[in-house]
Structures are given as structure tokens and as C-alpha cells.
Design a protein around this nucleic acid. Structure first.
Lengths: 219, 219
DNA sequence: CACTATAACGCCACCGAGTGGCATAAACCT
DNA sequence: AGGTTTATGCCACTCGGTGGCGTTATAGTG
């Protein structure tokens, strides 16, 4: 259901030829899709054009991605997949759920491929901001991830039973904080780097407790 | 951009004939769409069939709703619109943002039309749970609402400037809590009533502070 | 009441996303 | 090398969504 994550060329070497080819066309699709979409707009590029550019048939495209939105959202999706993988084995060390999740996200970002990763995520985010259907797709996916993460944590840890909303809420908060950090990062006029993203993340997560006690005073 | 909210027959009386007809076909579309979709599945009903049932042309459908998902998501959308309307004038009374937003939501739920409202929202929610594209649409819309709410609050109140994430986070928390309440409510085997929904909402909002300090202990 | 302006509607042709089926070709495994 | 498996290409098709335009119904005016 959820696609495999990106791999470096090194990781590719020791895979069967078939898998290598699949991974390469997948990556080629992502890269050219991001370029074409940012150049002429998401709706300004038809799938036929994209497939022509990568020299595959439309039928093959739909064996790799589930929709046109799916290919443009692949970079962040890869991030989420890696996140799920991380919390599967991360040591909680007695910390709160929120710092646990924050640490997981920071670690995952650190582990992403060096080559061109920031650019891909950046284009993905910028496209999502001006393309409603893409934004919708990403948010839906994000919710799937949240539910899966909830399952993982419930399985691994001794959490309050079924109808206690706290774990779910903590997950949603982490996702919200992460989103906010990404948003600000993508809009940053300065060259967005991995370091500037992690810095933003720490700031946003640190602001969460203050959000609870914030009050409204009329102008 | 955002559609008008539902109105009772009374409110309809003193509108020009044209507006009355439009509102009635809109309501007819929502009702029959919800029935057909729950009966045969969202993807099991074509737009042509829906339009036949309501005796309008497909062209007219798209003058009332922006997409197939839009008509199925109308009930919750109406709720959000009313929410925006409420926070436009609600008195903060020195409370925290979170209780302010919770109060707004409770008030809005209370103000919804008595006749068949719970059923419509319920069908909307249940459909969204099994229809990915509908879920995606609702979440996207929900984000639009959050941004608009942020604008309203920033305009009305003396909030921390631009890059302070706290207000945004508080809004996201409220939305998350609301979603969780709705989800539990829709899955409730007992007859879902307005009262049971508001009760769930209070519980969920009350659990928010505890979500921050929750820790993970291995099994 | 008649007459015009204006907004909504229906119809039709069209585009593009996504799917099923089947023949073909490439990669895998002795 | 030869048979099996798996991916690919091609074709036809469905359905969601849009633009254009003629027609109908409502609103407004003398």
C-alpha cells in the first residue's frame, strides 16, 4: 500500500536488476514530475506528457504511483515512511510522547539522502501550497501515517486503553508542529538547508506548551 | 469560494424566488447524494445517476458544488462556515484560545438545524471514513478553514506577531480535538445525538493538557 | 401587463485521469 | 538455452469535470 522509500545508488547495487530498474524509473518519474510541475503548474502538465518525458507508458506509471498527486507527494511520503520505521524501534528514554516524536522526526531528516533531497521536498511543499488536490492528497496520507503510528505506539508501549484520546492528540500535535515547521522552512527566502529545518522544528515543538495557555486580548 | 450554509424553510421564505430554488436543489442534492452514496458506495454512484435522481443536468450540479466530494462533505463544511462566522464576534472573556475555540464549536453545534442535521453529518463522516478521496477533500477544506480562522483571530485580537507559531498550534489542536470527538461520536453504536457529541467534545478538549505530559513506558 | 435585461439552466462536445485486458518482452532460474 | 515469472506497452473504455451556446425563467421597469 505505501511505496518503498528512496535509496542511494549504493544501496541499489546489490538488488536484482528488475528492482534496480523499477527504483530508477520511480526516481526519474519523481524528478521530472517535480521539474515539469513547478515549471508549468501541476494542472499544466498531463500524465501523457510526463510519461513521454520519462519514456514509459501511462499504464506503467499507474503501476508505480496511484495517482498524479502521488508522484508529486512522494518526497514527503518517503519521509513519513522513514518516520514510521524509526518509531518502530526508538528508545523512549522516559521522555514525553512529544519529545519522543520530535526526536524521531529529527533523526529521520538527518538520515535522508544527501543528494538533492532538500530540493525535492522543497518543490513538493511549494507545489502542494498552490495545488488544492495535491494538498488534499498529502493531508490524507498524513492522516494514514498518524493512524499507523498510533498502532505502532499502542503495540510497543503501555499506553492508556482505547478511548483515551491523549496519545492520539499528542500525535496530532506533533504532526501539526512538524507541518508548521515545514511550511515556514519552505517559504524561507534564504537557502533552505537541513540544518535550518531542524532548527525550525526545535523552535516549533518548544512552542507547543505555550500554545495551550495562550489567551486572547482584544485590540 | 466557500458555499453558503444550510437554512431552515423559515429562513428561506423571505428570499427571492431564484435564491429559494437554488437553496432547495442544493439541499436535495446533499440529501439524495448522502443516501445514494451510503447505499451503493461513493464510487458506486456516478454523477449522472445522482443528477438524474434530482432531475438536474450535470452542468447545473457543477454550478452548485465544485466536485463529487464537495456534495458529500457539505454537512461538515456548513459546520465550519458557521464556526468562522461565530469566532468573528465571540467574546473571549479572558479565557485561553483553546477554551475559546471549544466554546465556539459547542455553540455552533447547538445552532445547527434541528431537522435531520445529525443524520446528515453522521452519513458525511461515515462516508469519509471509507472513501479516501472524500477524506482528503474534507481535510484540505479543514485546513483552509484553519487558515481563515487564523486570519480572523489575528485581525480581532492582539496576538503575537507573524512567526510566533503558538496561535496556529492552538488552532490545530482544537481542530484535532474536534476531529477526534467527531470520529468517536460517529462510531458510537448508540444513537448519536447532539448532546452526546457535545459531551465527547468537552471530554476531548479536557484531555489536551494531559496529552502534552504523557510519557511512554515499554510493556 | 408587456417588454427588456439578466441570471440560471440544459445540452453537447471535449479533455484528461484512471482501469481492465491481453499480447509482448524482459529478467530470473535452473 | 529453455521454460517460468514478472513487468511493460497498447487499446479501448468509463467517468469526473469544463467551455460554449442556445433556451428558459425570474427580476425589474414603463
Amino acid at each position: 500500500m505505501l511505496a518503498r522509500r528512496v535509496m542511494t545508488e549504493d544501496e541499489l547495487r546489490d538488488l536484482p536488476l528488475r528492482e534496480r530498474k523499477k527504483a530508477r524509473t520511480r526516481q526519474a518519474l519523481i524528478d521530472t514530475a517535480l521539474e515539469l510541475f513547478t515549471e508549468r503548474g501541476f494542472d499544466g502538465v498531463t500524465l501523457d506528457e510526463l510519461c513521454d518525458a520519462v519514456e514509459i507508458s501511462k499504464r506503467t506509471f499507474f503501476r508505480t504511483f496511484t495517482s498524479k498527486e502521488d508522484v508529486a507527494g512522494a518526497p514527503t511520503q518517503d519521509l513519513w515512511i522513514a518516520f514510521l520505521d524509526d518509531i518502530e524501534s526508538r528508545d523512549p528514554a522516559g521522555a514525553t510522547v512529544l519529545t519522543f516524536l520530535c526526536d524521531a522526526l529529527l533523526a529521520v531528516i538527518d538520515r535522508m539522502p544527501a543528494e538533492g533531497w532538500t530540493r525535492r521536498v522543497l518543490l513538493n511543499l511549494q507545489l502542494a501550497e498552490k495545488t488544492p488536490s495535491l494538498d488534499a492528497h498529502c493531508r490524507h496520507l498524513c492522516d494514514l501515517i498518524t493512524r499507523t503510528a498510533l498502532d505502532i505506539l499502542t503495540r510497543r508501549f503501555d499506553v492508556p486503553p482505547g478511548d483515551d484520546p491523549r496519545l492520539r492528540l499528542a500525535l496530532d500535535m506533533a504532526v501539526a508542529a512538524f507541518h508548521h515547521a515545514l511550511e515556514g522552512w519552505a517559504a524561507d527566502p534564504a537557502e533552505p538547508t537541513r540544518a535550518s529545518l531542524t532548527a525550525r522544528m526545535r523552535d516549533t515543538f518548544a512552542a507547543v506548551p505555550g500554545a495551550l495557555t495562550l489567551t486572547l486580548t482584544p485590540r
